[in-house]
Design a protein around this nucleic acid. Sequence first.
DNA 1: AAGGTCGGCAACCGCATGTAG
DNA 2: CCTACATGCGGTTGCCGACCT
Length: 314
Amino acid sequence: MGRAPCCDKDNVKRGPWSSEEDAKLKTYMEKYGTGGNWIALPQKIGLNRCGKSCRLRWLNYLRPNLKHGGFTEEEDNIICSLYISIGSRWSIIAAQLPGRTDNDIKNYWNTRLKKKLLGRHKEPHRNRLSISSQDSNGIDDSQNFQNLSITALERLQLHMQIKTLQNPFCLYYNPALMVQNFQFLEENQDIQMQQDYFNLSNLKEDELGNSINGIPSTENISGQSNTNTNTGIQPSLTFIQAELDVGFIPAQNSMVVDEFQCFKEIDSSKLYNPRWLSNEFDVNLASSNSWDSANVLHKPEEMCQNYSTGYSIQ
DNA sequence: AAGGTCGGCAACCGCATGTAG
DNA sequence: CCTACATGCGGTTGCCGACCT
């Protein structure tokens, strides 16, 4: 069964908004709000626009207290940290940045921030293809990799870069390798080995010191002590691992060293610790069905109270 | 100066999700 | 519980100005 269109697309104006249209919408919204129905709104105020278009224009451009452009270093840090932790969930990221819209942040990430962080890197896809081989099912690894979530790969890459930066010793502590090893153990259902592996993971972190990670290793993301064996891997990595449905070939050391060279300008003393980012928070926020994302923007103070400093991206 | 290319950003598209009846 | 509909959201497109040749 097809969905009924929200408006007659052939008969509504599309494209850039005129100042008159903006004025009409802004005046009405400031006076009456949506009245709970965006679809009916354009007709009420004599705009030949789709209701969705009106909503987008209001939320992304006309709404009061919006900031455009000029992202601060602190905002960069927060965006980067959250992207690593939760991926491209722009509305949640926007909720942490008062006055910013999800669209703004998405555009900013895609056009600038991502390039700032990853732009000087070798093409990850090419790296993967260059070490392609066949698995036991005769399926080429390169085919598997093409199925990987791009954002998961980017996040894993960023995660590795930051870890490497924080402590060069973590060249021996390779998240990608950990993912691969753990998947191998899971596939083989070797519980004892999994236990040993996580114990070893904790030991390795303890040996290197907790400061090796910007992300807590001895607490889970809810800020509670670890009580099960599945918390030896940092939360971020766990998130990423969940997205890696197929095998992963770890980066070669030479590539990691290249990354270290590329990112040595990042000030590793300013590391953002997203320990407040619990699953509970995530679910609550994601399920909010607010008409106006400005409502969500009121929450950062509550949710960011445990912010420490962030990545410094120069 | 003219044409081509690129980057930034506003806006659109369509699927996912929530909810009222 | 089911259905229809409104809204939320992330990915994508296309316009436009800046820069390059």
